[in-house]
Amino acid sequence: MMRLLRVIRAQLRASLALALQYRLEFLVEGLLALLWMAVTLVPLLVVFGARGTVAGWSFAEMLVVLGWFVALKGVLEGTLSPSLMQVVEHVRKGTLDFVLLKPADAQLLVSLSKIEPWRVIDFAGAAVIFTYAFRQIGHAPSAADLLLSAALLLAAVLVLYSIAILVVSIAFVAVRVDNLLYLFQSVFDVARWPSSVFRGALAMIFTYVLPLALMTTYPALALLGKLNARTALGALLGAFVFAGLARLIWLSSIRRYTSASS
């Protein structure tokens, strides 16, 4: 266990050093992150310019969903995407061999191989959005709701991470999956809306196939004090099952992997 933590620490240290290597990039990316956050607000303003509620959600409540979306997007684009793009590179160049020969879990080694620390700005942004939203609503969330919502956020990150691991597992079979990662990033955009906005087949897909609803809607409902305990428990359990499944598929992909050159 101590060894595991030391590996994680060393991995994070190297990733951080990598990010700090380029000061200009650091600055530019930080500014870009701010800009994108502002852009994120636009569709919501457009929709609520015309009406007061959408699918039973008020503007302020919808902002809470958006807050979680911004935070999760930060996690996705700040840690998961860059690291997993590295795996795709490893597979393409055949350097995954080095990772597989390390006496540490390969999934752990690849999952933190590259981070973009300026994405912390997204969390600051999310905090601003939450503050504004709850000012509008008129009361702050209770401590219990905060706690539940944090637990659900954890579940959301787990699911997001598992999806990324699944995408990368495909990389072992089909070498070019960078497009798949981009596709996933665009599909993830759906999570900016509460799941009840979608009807019929789409609602099914976004709840069970790609559990995007679970990622932002549930933590938002929890924060608003509208999520019942059973759904919360179900979401948490589902997230763990999903992560376990992703792990199994990852392991079997590793077994099937044969290096790029013979």
Binding site: R3, R6, V7, R9, A10, Q11, R13, A14, A17, L18, Q21, Y22, K93, G94, T95, D97, F98, L101, K102, P103, A104, L109
Partner: peptide, 28 residues
């Protein structure tokens, strides 16, 4: 250990000492 002349494990953008430190942790 495996060394491949055509492929490298050193982190491209960082000094080799960083890869050393990383491997120290991984190999404990």
């Amino acid at each position: 250990t495996l060394v491949m002349g055509q492929k490298q494990q050193l982190l491209w953008d960082l000094p080799p000492s960083e890869t050393f430190a990383l491997n120290r942790a991984i190999y404990d």
